[in-house]
């Protein structure tokens, strides 16, 4: 399940979405968030595992994760997916059935949503085309994540519709390093 060659990542600001947003004024400023959880999985469909510390490798991904190894569901397709993030606020909203698009509350635990980083206080939808810092690591927002039917099938939970437009952010790693839960997250102006 390991691969010797780097998977075909598209550099975040070269992505067709990130490249348009990059350099355009606007977005949210003046916020400060934090990193709550780090999760990786060794290959497509494997259960996520929580880490207390992770190494981010520039242009590649999180050490040990499927999108760093090239073993992910979407690895064969070139895209921006070195690190994926989701807001804890979205998980909280699903848990209170907000908006009420399905039969009832969905409890999507950080270990189950399959994004790498669960963050709080970070306006992910405003970070396409922006640089931001997680601890010592600098990430580039490449494109919004999009919920997939595969996740619904994998989890056996109807998460597709409630995650629409708030499914998180796919990023590239500009500067690698070590990240840990509790790391502050700030915009790089």
């Amino acid at each position: 399940m390991s691969t010797t060659s780097a998977p075909p990542h598209i550099e975040a600001f070269a992505h067709k979405v990130g490249s348009v947003a990059h350099g355009v004024p606007g977005g949210a400023t003046g916020w400060q968030g934090s990193l709550l959880h780090i999760h990786i999985a060794p290959a497509a469909s494997y259960e996520m595992e929580e880490l207390t510390e992770a190494r981010c490798v520039a242009g590649r991904g999180i050490e040990g994760d499927r999108y760093c190894l090239g073993t992910g569901t979407y690895s064969p397709k070139a895209d921006t997916r070195e690190v994926t993030l989701i807001e804890q606020e979205v998980l909280d909203a699903l848990a209170r059935n907000d908006p009420p698009l399905q039969e009832g509350p969905i409890h999507l635990a950080p270990i189950d949503h399959r994004r790498n980083l669960t963050v709080r206080g970070v306006p992910l939808n405003h970070l396409v085309g922006r640089r931001f810092q997680v601890g010592e690591v600098i990430l580039r927002g490449g494109r919004l994540n999009f919920p997939c039917k595969y996740l619904e099938e994998l989890l056996g939970l109807p998460v597709y519709l409630p995650l629409y437009n708030r499914s998180g952010l796919n990023c590239g790693i500009e500067r690698g390093g070590i990240i840990r839960p509790g790391d502050p997250i700030t915009l790089v102006e």
């Binding site: 290959a43 469909s45 494997y46 259960e47 099938e153 989890l155 056996g156 939970l157 109807p158």
Partner: peptide
Amino acid sequence: MSARIVMKL
């Protein structure tokens, strides 16, 4: 719908 996540048991 059936979940097919792989667990390392």
